[in-house]
Amino acid sequence: MEKLYPGLAVMFPCKAGGYSAELGFTGNPKERDFAAINLNLEQDNKNDLALQEQSSPDSDDDNATTQVGSFVSLHQHSQDVAAEVKTLLDDVPEGLKAFKFNSLKEAYGWDEAWVQRLIQAGLYHDVGKAHPVFQHLLTQKRPERENGLWAKSDHTRQERKAMKPPKDWRRGFRHEWASALVALREYPEDFLLAYLVACHHGKVRMTVQARPRETKPPEHHKPYALGVWEGDVIGNVEGVTSEDYTLTLDCIALGRESWQNRAIALLHHYGPFQLAYLETLIRIADWRASSISKQ
């Protein structure tokens, strides 16, 4: 094996051992309990195909929440998600009603600054969709829509699967990473906001690395990660951002101000459960807003 990288699947012959039916991979060559494994390869292949149809680990091009049956502007969807975040914070979950709290924000002691931070995360979560690469995807075979900025399209899932990606499509592109970079530019001191924007699809969290098979920029010296290239421009989104932004990927370099270092600091400060809870608020708000768009 000459080149190892995160996410690589490596196969070893059974005779090499190292597997326990109770513990899984152990690395102990004396453990060879492979008889307990049900090698139903045909069913495994069917399961893999089903998962691939549901979501793609590397790109947005078959994200089911992007095809909702009608075009929805990026401005409208951003406002909808921000409104859903506010609704969640103003609501009282069933589990807290017995404690006589008037709202979720009251239960957790979140002041107005905290509330506005979470609402802003909802507002900024999809600004990366203003990237030309993503807009070309949404307006593919819809030339009458090319003058707008869209968050959702009316392509059906079957139609999307039958179409070839646009010529400028970048394999591995993650719109939420572009969104996070914009949020980081507008609120450089509020890394939590940028982090919550980045992780609302669960694909970007502690570390940001270029994927092995993603589209690389023609300039070999140019930094890139998750389909976003140094110097990409995100257009102004009405009601959200204040200007066009030229993206920089300085934060993926090593150092104290790197994305990884700041994300780890968040984890240490808030702990995994509170951080996951905050992530979930933005995710649920996005789901709710997207479901409204489908109606």
Score class of each variant (00 low, 15 high):
residue 268 H to W: 05
residue 247 L to N: 07
residue 149 L to E: 10
residue 217 P to M: 04
residue 244 D to K: 03
residue 200 H to V: 12
residue 183 A to Y: 02
residue 206 M to H: 12
residue 277 Y to A: 14
residue 199 C to G: 15
residue 196 L to M: 13
residue 214 E to L: 06
residue 264 I to W: 14
residue 154 D to Y: 00
residue 177 W to T: 05
residue 175 H to R: 09
residue 211 R to I: 01
residue 160 R to L: 13
residue 237 V to H: 00
residue 243 E to G: 01
residue 165 P to V: 12
residue 178 A to H: 05
residue 227 G to D: 00
residue 266 L to N: 01
residue 210 A to Y: 02
residue 228 V to E: 07
residue 231 G to F: 08
residue 205 R to K: 14
residue 222 K to S: 13
residue 216 K to D: 02
residue 160 R to P: 05
residue 275 L to M: 09
residue 267 L to S: 06
residue 227 G to R: 01
residue 200 H to C: 13
residue 272 P to C: 03
residue 264 I to L: 10
residue 186 E to T: 05
residue 269 H to S: 07
residue 209 Q to V: 01
residue 241 T to Y: 08
residue 167 K to N: 15
residue 273 F to C: 14
residue 163 M to K: 10
residue 245 Y to G: 00
residue 162 A to F: 06
residue 204 V to A: 01
residue 163 M to N: 14
residue 244 D to C: 05
residue 159 E to L: 03
residue 174 R to S: 12
residue 174 R to W: 12
residue 264 I to A: 12
residue 151 A to L: 14
residue 192 L to C: 09
residue 179 S to Q: 08
residue 239 G to N: 01
residue 260 Q to V: 00
residue 265 A to K: 03
residue 257 E to A: 07
residue 220 H to F: 00
residue 185 R to Q: 10
residue 233 V to M: 11
residue 203 K to E: 10
residue 168 D to I: 13
residue 248 T to Y: 10
residue 224 Y to N: 03
residue 173 F to L: 11
residue 153 S to Y: 05
residue 196 L to G: 08
residue 211 R to H: 00
residue 166 P to N: 12
residue 243 E to V: 01
residue 204 V to H: 11
residue 182 V to R: 13
residue 250 D to T: 01
residue 217 P to V: 10
residue 208 V to Y: 15
